[in-house]
Design a protein around this nucleic acid. Structure first.
Lengths: 241, 241
DNA sequence: GGAGGCAATTTGGAACTCCAACTTTGAGGG
DNA sequence: CCCTCAAAGTTGGAGTTCCAAATTGCCTCC
């Protein structure tokens, strides 16, 4: 904390310290901005700025008319990525095995492959694909979004077949899945995603690009959007003897 | 965009749309706040607020005295998590294989296991462990931080032995690694991490908790901090016939 | 004891103003 | 053409003031 640093950073650092060292526990109230101006001898602008930074870090949350409060640090539910890949809805099976009631909606439609999807599926641009959009719910609240793309040649996953899952469905078509690859990164959610997932301000998502391979051919690719404040992803790698 | 929405959101949405649809390409300048007030008929506060939100989303970056500019969307270098686990520095080997010169520093010291580490290593609280802190550099710039913990009984990885890597080292001690588990989540970086990794404002990190298992015993656990604007993690899962 | 009303307080949005440090541009001179 | 300097403009920090919507606590009445 250099003496030339902006005053708001002094306020941020002090409050952050109290939160991190436990002096201010989850649910505890933070001084109002009027109180901060008096306590730290700063103006309202700096007080607001400090509160804004702390809120953006997810450490506090403001309630209109009431005040700011320390946020409980989220417990991140683990999603074991390879454990349920033979279920018809791996995510659903995972959180259900952890005691959360899981439901999901999906919508399937024919689409043209965007350049990105075409590349991932090694198709021509604008090739015909089948796009299936999912909303997964835990205890009734949306907790994950996913969009899956398959070459149109595999046909549309009709409603009765969908519960069978991708791997057996493609197997019945003579396509054997040999590998699943997931690429994980973090990003800012799009406004529609924030709305759909009821994300608190400042929360980023984990974005998983998952591709099913049959030998050296990609036969399905998905974009999965996972709230970064609710889940962590667990990957296991056994070592062969 | 409801008509009762704050005016700053109108500005945000308009500029975001231009960036997303390519009208404003990377490097393009954004109107200054004075220009925004005139263009959108809002006050300076709302103009600043809009710019602040866009900056927090990583879409623009402000340069003092110059203006705001559209940020190039980062190309995320893939880190193949299981490909180099038998190297002495898997991360280094990974980015080196992609053309980036990798170097790293580390520092080893005895420590007492915190409750979290004790739980992860199935040790008593405050049990003696060996803590090794790493700073990984790509082309001379820090690009990843990691802290590794081992039970103290394995001894201190002395400098000459470190290049051999964890798995052969423990193997020489009669401990056979049977599985590696990585848990991935995203979070706000701590100030020291932001400094160390030179993270732009608003960038979150991927945090990987990695544990090496020998049978049902955890024998090493690490916390790995990866800039969310530079890397993505790639996990592969072969399906057995 | 419970319900309702009211005052005080709070947050989030917003306006206007000022300032230091910095950048950019244009004019003038060599 | 190149260099210098001044003017204009920019960002980030900061202050003060106002307002709508919401919350909380206290008081009064039934």
């Amino acid at each position: 904390m250099a003496s030339s640093d902006p005053v708001y950073l002094r306020v941020v650092a002090d409050i952050r310290r109290q939160i991190v060292d436990g002096s201010l526990s989850p649910g505890a109230s933070i001084p109002s901005r009027a109180q901060l101006t008096r306590k730290y001898g700063v103006g309202e602008t700096a007080a607001r700025h400090a509160l804004r930074v702390l809120a953006a870090e997810g450490l506090i949350v403001g309630r209109v008319g009431s005040g700011h409060y320390v946020r409980a640090q989220p417990t991140l539910l683990p999603l074991h990525r390879w454990r349920f890949h033979d279920h018809h809805a791996p995510f659903g099976a995972d959180i259900q095995s952890q005691g959360t009631r899981a439901t999901w909606d999906w919508r399937t439609e024919p689409a043209d492959a965007t350049p990105d999807i075409a590349q991932r599926l090694r198709l021509e641009e604008f090739a015909a694909v089948t796009r299936t959009s999912y909303v997964f719910r835990g205890d009734g609240k949306p907790v994950q979004l996913a969009t899956s793309y398959e070459p149109a040649e595999f046909g549309e996953p009709v409603a009765e077949e969908n519960p069978r899952g991708l791997i057996p469905r493609l197997s019945a078509l003579g396509v054997k899945i040999t590998e699943i690859v997931e690429q994980v990164y973090t990003r800012v959610p799009q406004p529609a995603e924030s709305d759909a997932l009821a994300l608190p301000a400042g929360v980023h998502v984990l974005h998983v690009e998952r591709t099913h391979w049959a030998g050296d051919r990609p036969v399905e690719t998905s974009d999965i959007v996972i709230p970064g404040d609710r889940f962590r992803l667990v990957y296991s790698h056994p070592l062969t003897p």
